[in-house]
Design a binder for these strands. Structure first.
Lengths: 271, 271
DNA sequence: AAGTGGTCTAGACCACTGT
DNA sequence: CAGTGGTCTAGACCACTTA
């Protein structure tokens, strides 16, 4: 488990010395202090994938209520330092994976190990905001392709691709088979178009129930919502709304997609 | 205040009918249900800028503990629907502002009303991760320019720009005046370089204490951290770490920066 | 069945904002 | 000063995973 060299008054969470641990008085909130202490312990005393003591235990060690401890863990999870799974425990998260979103080709496989997995294709009326981007009447039906993006086998994003019928004129009527087969043919037709440009926007959101399920997270988990407008032949050919796991992903843009950045210095693997 | 047309069993939060409001039994968590109800009420019954009943009052109306209500409000704030200020109250947030980050010119003022406000320039050793991006020894000192980005007068981002001495060779030694004056001259020197390319990454984080203060948020508030690597003359000339308010900002990339998108359909202003 | 994290309660006090 | 949101407590029960 590696005790490492701790500097200060040694607020040890990896040791057996329980109860003696006290938070010295501070003007700042306890959970903030706690987060800092835990963060340092994570750097020095724990390996990636290692499982932490359970919440009741940790709370007792630090002499705080479980709710307070959880506030600290919540933040660390938000920052991608921890991963919590109900019924299992809290583990030290690996550094975030860089996920390229700026590459021009629409279905590009991205870095090695990156895939889009076509889910299905239905017909539906897009949300008002998407309809506006597409420049169609709110209420007009469009093709909706559902895809899942995998990196190293792990799902990192769930996407809804809104494709107006006008963008894929050579396709049979919307009804027919609504499975992955149709999804793929819609994508194939789309890629025939020459892309003029793409606009992209990123914002913070919380996962809808369906997305959460596919991303293996609880509903409401923080996500990065990437909205992309694909412009071809002078008009908006499609709009994509992709929901990326905020805890595990670092979205990369630009010419050479700088992967290989690690935010957390001390990396070791759990035994 | 506008009562609007509510569809379902009328879970009214804007009315005087208190106490009668009950959450019907559901397999999903209360706070999730609550969030949905509040979200709909926000769309139909409230105007932007309007102030909501206080938390104790709302909790009572819905027959839940305050902590549970707060869990719902937390999510709505995360999604940018609400703004809470201690000592004041909870108000309905305006739609997120689109903030352009993809434009090529480094100090570009962006959309009308957009400014970078130079703060100061100190000398320091960058974090290990930045040092790696810059390709310098960890421990080597660089210029650190602090800037604040304003949109329509509101601060939206706090930036730290790391500039190795090698990138601005014509500048006097690092000591001299560490104020905004030096910051501006560093920026001026930087812009002399011809930019080859930029790599950019976006990830979720929580605001450090100093950034939080400048962004008028509490420490730990959710932020979007944009890390940019500026490449000039074949090497990394500078690295910028910009911290954007996640609640108020939608980061836009690409050719034409699609502003004017509103996620929230019914927009009215508070009286 | 035992152990984990997730939800929820009913209080309390604190820090900050306005008047 | 009164009123707001922010923090904190000490419990309880639930949903889920694993053995």
């Amino acid at each position: 488990m590696n005790k490492g060299a701790k500097s200060r008054g040694d607020t040890a969470i990896a040791e057996d010395r329980v109860g003696t641990t006290q938070l010295e008085s501070a003007p700042e909130p306890k959970y903030w202090h706690l987060k800092t202490v835990l963060s340092e312990a994570l750097d020095s005393d724990f390996a990636v994938g290692e499982i932490l003591p359970n919440e009741r235990e940790l709370a007792a060690r630090f002499g705080v209520a479980r709710a307070t401890l959880r506030q600290a863990l919540d933040q660390l999870e938000l920052e991608g330092r921890l991963q919590r799974r109900r019924g299992v425990g809290t583990t030290v998260a690996p550094p975030r994976v860089g996920v390229a979103v700026g590459t021009s080709q629409h279905d590009w496989p991205g870095a090695p190990g990156d895939t889009w997995q076509a889910g299905g294709c239905t017909s539906a009326t897009p949300p008002a905001m998407v309809a506006r981007l597409l420049g169609i009447e709110p209420g007009e039906e469009v093709n909706v392709v559902r895809r899942l993006r995998l990196t190293h086998g792990q799902p990192v994003a769930a996407e809804l691709l809104y494709v107006p019928v006008g963008s894929v004129p050579d396709l049979p009527a919307i009804d027919s088979p609504s499975g992955p087969a149709r999804a793929r043919s819609v994508l194939r037709e789309l890629q025939r178009l020459e892309l003029d440009s793409q606009d992209r926007a990123v914002e913070l959101g919380s996962a809808r129930a369906d997305d959460a399920k596919e991303l293996d997270r609880l509903p409401g988990a923080p996500v990065l919502v990437v909205t992309t407008r694909y412009v071809a032949e002078g008009r908006t050919a499609a709009v994509s709304v992709a929901t990326y796991r905020a805890d595990t992903c670092r979205l990369t843009f630009g010419d050479s997609g700088n992967v290989e950045i690690s935010h957390h210095p001390h990396e070791r693997r759990a035994s």
